[in-house]
Structure formats: structure tokens, C-alpha cells
């Protein structure tokens, strides 16, 4: 059952990701991204990372995507015009993509992968809010606090870009 769910949602995630790139209209791309985020949340849930799954839905699929869609609608961007691909992208794009996938396949399926236990669905219970809270406020206290400085800079940047008096 777990494996079936995994395969279904992994396939949905990949399909949405491909669609995200192929779509010409920004709104369609943004909605495909919602699909990617949602399926990723299910994958996290399957692995036992329940807090991550909820955060993924609330923050990414919720807040971030709503903002994306708002901005796209406010700017009233139309269809992508002029698929100006460089000659390099046209000639070498597909072969390079295939080579990359082949390389990844070789790394993951081949003899190079470390001999570790395979992932068992439902065998890991470290993804609760309690466990994550402990990790954030003990081992990862400093990165967590410094990230707040990052948010402060982002706010400051928004102020600078939006202010009037400098010409």
C-alpha cells in the first residue's frame, strides 16, 4: 500500500514539475507548482516526517503559492512571448538531459551506492513536532536564530525597493 502510494505521488510530482516548465502561461506554471508541493507533502508523510508535511502544505502550497499567484495576477502577465532559446540549448539540451539522467541512474542503481538499509515506510518516528522543536532549539539553535536576520534583511530590502524619495 505504501509503495503504491509512493509511486503514484512521485509520478504526480514529476509530471507536475515537467508541466511547470512546459506551460507557456505563468498561472498554469504556478498551479503546476502547487501540484508538486502537494505531492511532496504526501511523500514526506509516507516517510514519517509529519511536521514537514504539514509545513509544506501550510507554508509552500498555502502562503508562498498564494503570493505567487497574486503577483502574477497583479502584474497581469500574459503568455510567454518569443521562445528565444539559444543555439546551444537547442542543439545540446536534449542530449545533455539524457546524459544527466543516465548518470544519475548509474549512481543510484549501480554498484556505487553505499550499502545501506533500504528505507522502510513507517519505520521512522523522528518527524514529530516535538522532535523537530528539540532539534531547532538545541543543536540547530544558531542557524535558526541567524535565519531570522535573513528575514530582517528581506524586509529591509523590500523597504529600499519600495521607498519613494531616492531618484
Amino acid at each position: 500500500m505504501d509503495t503504491v502510494l509512493f509511486i503514484v505521488f512521485a509520478a504526480v510530482a514529476v509530471a507536475c514539475a515537467v508541466n511547470l516548465i512546459l506551460q507557456k502561461h505563468p498561472i498554469s506554471s504556478a498551479l503546476s507548482l502547487v501540484g508538486v508541493m502537494g505531492s511532496l507533502a504526501v511523500l514526506y508523510l509516507l516517510l514519517g516526517a509529519e511536521f514537514m508535511a504539514v509545513t509544506q502544505i501550510v507554508v509552500y502550497a498555502g502562503a508562498v503559492m498564494v503570493l505567487f499567484v497574486f503577483v502574477i495576477m497583479l502584474l497581469n502577465t500574459g503568455q510567454e512571448t518569443g521562445g528565444g532559446k539559444s543555439w546551444f540549448a537547442q542543439v545540446a539540451g536534449l542530449p545533455l538531459l539524457l546524459a544527466f539522467i543516465a548518470l544519475m541512474g548509474l549512481l543510484i542503481c549501480g554498484p556505487l551506492m553505499p550499502r545501506l538499509r533500504a528505507v522502510q515506510f513507517g519505520s521512522w518516528h523522528g518527524g514529530t513536532a516535538r522532535a523537530i522543536g528539540r532539534a531547532i532549539f538545541t543543536d540547530y539553535l544558531l542557524p535558526f536564530e541567524v535565519t531570522s536576520v535573513l528575514v530582517l534583511i528581506a524586509i529591509l530590502g523590500a523597504v529600499v525597493l519600495a521607498r519613494k524619495e531616492i531618484d
Binding site: 536576520v149 534583511i153 529591509l156 530590502g157 529600499v160 525597493l161
Partner: peptide, 8 residues
């Protein structure tokens, strides 16, 4: 932190 401040 360093880069985002530099971009602005």
C-alpha cells in the same frame, strides 16, 4: 545573509 544584503 551576506549575498541578499549585497544584492540590495
Amino acid at each position: 545573509v551576506s549575498s541578499i544584503a549585497s544584492y540590495i
